Every structure is written in C-alpha cells, then in structure tokens.
Amino acid sequence: MTLVNLAQVLQPALAQGYAVGGLVTLGWEDMRAYVAAAEAENCPVILQAGPSCRAHTPLPVLGKMFRHLAEASSVPVVAHLDHGYTFEDCKIALDSGFTSVMFDGSRKPLRQNIDETAAIAEMAHAAGISCEGEIGFVGYSGGENSNGTDPEEAVQFARDSGVDAMAISVGNVHLQQDKEGGLDLARIAQIQALTTVPLVIHGGSGVPVAQRSALAAQTSVCKFNIGTELRMAFGVALRAAVASDPDRFDRVQMLGDTIDPVQQAAQHVLRAFGAPPQR
C-alpha cells in the first residue's frame, strides 16, 4: 500500500529540489490515468477532489476510489481534498479516508483565515493527515480577480496556522487554458526568503512548462495543481471516441478510450517536475 499524506511527498521534494503534481480528478477514468502516469514516470502523485468533483460524486465514495488505486500502486499516492470551504468539508474528507485536506479560507480576513485553517490543521494532524492552506487569493480566468499574496502576511499564516503546505497567489489563475502568463518570480522569492513551508501553485495549467520545471528545481514551490490542461486532453479524447462510430452508444467503451490519451498528457505534466525515481 502506497497511500501517503501530503507532508510525506512534499518534504522530500523540498529537500531535493523537485515538485509533485496535484492532479485534479473528475471521475474514475482520469484517476486511473493519473496513477498509471505516475507509475510510468516512477514518481509520486496527488489525486485531488475539488468542488466540481465532489458535486458529482460524494466524498465517501471518492475516498474509497482514491484508496483503492493507492493500495494497488507502486508509487506514493496522496488522497487530497482540494478547496474545502468549511470545517465540515474537511472533517467528512478525513472520515472518508483522505490523507490530506486543503482548507480554502482565502476570501476571508487574514485573522479569520489563520484561525480557521489552524483549527483544521490541528484536526488533520491529530488524525495523522496533512493540511494545506491558502494565503492571498488565486482568481479565476474570466471570473474573480486575484489578490496577490503579501509576503509579511504569508509569514504570519505559515507560523500561526501550522499548515504543511501553503498555496500562494503570485500571478497564477485557475481555469486558464493557455500558457501565455508566467508567475511573479520576485514575489515568490520574497515569500520563500521569509518562510520554510512548501509552497503550492494553484492554476498550474496556465504556467509555462519551462517555468514549472525551473521553479520546482530552484525554489520552495513543491506542488503544482494541474486540472484544466488535463481536462482539455480528456475532452479531445472523448470527442474523438464519440465521433469514431455514429452507432456507438456504450459509455464504458467511449470513456475507456480517454484513458491512454489522458495518461500520456499526465506523464508529460509529471515529467517536468523533475522527481527522481522512487525506490
């Protein structure tokens, strides 16, 4: 069984200069593809259940799916709740067998965000699982604007919340479909100089691949969340599967045709993070 918590994969990444992919799942086919990709690349992987995934499949079911895949995997697998918005979200994930929770209090005032994140981190640590928090606000492409992370606030947050990983807002945006952007390297350097906690980039699909690799090797950024570019690969594969035969109607067959293309896309993502072979 290679089910692990977030700290168990991020601390080695921090020490050795690489990153781990937090791959956003929506269903069984992409989960399978992500674990197969990690095995092919011989690297750890973080399976993430975000709000849209949880709206489709209940957390207790997702926990069993993640754990089933992890138990059969030859590489470390983290079962991670992404963007839990309440204590109850995180408690249900904990009770459902997740090994890591991300509490998102980033829309709240600093003190409230710290206090609520600290309470969830305490609960998580008591159960032997990890907690990620967010300071600053990572916006959405075509939606809410970002609020960049203040380095001094990041110091407070890291110190007082007790998180195992800290998501920061440094030019990254959720749901970005292109890679025309690039992150605020000066702000990352400021945050890194003042904190020791592993840093997380949400909205990693919008970050150029070369910059992902450089940040993984040279900074405290140890986790990139990747969702949109993998969903795009899934969509292309599914459209091809549907169009290949107008008489086809079995969704198991059509969805099955997405697994290999998504695995290949996920391998490309994971390879860029520079993880050494697992032993």
Rank of each mutant, 00 (worst) to 15 (best):
Q192R: 00
M166R: 00
S205Y: 06
L230D: 10
G204A: 09
V200I: 05
T219F: 01
T195F: 03
D164L: 09
Q218G: 11
G181F: 14
Q192F: 06
Q218W: 02
G162T: 14
P208Y: 03
G204M: 08
G227R: 09
A165M: 04
I191Q: 01
L175H: 12
G182W: 14
H202D: 08
K223T: 08
P208C: 08
C222I: 05
K179V: 13
M232L: 15
A233P: 13
I168P: 00
V163H: 00
Q190K: 13
T196V: 12
T219R: 01
I191Y: 11
I201V: 11
S169A: 15
E180N: 15
L185R: 14
Q177F: 10
A233D: 06
L230T: 04
V197Q: 01
D164S: 11
P198H: 02
S205D: 10
N172W: 01
Q176S: 14
G204L: 08
A217P: 07
T228K: 03
A217H: 08
G206A: 08
G227I: 13
H202A: 07
S220W: 06
K223L: 12
Q190C: 05
S220E: 12
V197Y: 05
V197T: 13
R187H: 09
N172A: 06
E229D: 15
G203W: 11
G227C: 09
I191H: 03
L199I: 10
T219P: 02
I168K: 06
R231Y: 14
C222D: 07
D178E: 10
T228G: 09
A186L: 14
C222N: 13
L194N: 13
V170E: 00
N172V: 10
A165H: 03
I168L: 00
A165G: 08
K223S: 01
E180T: 15
G203R: 10
T219V: 03
R212N: 06
V170F: 02
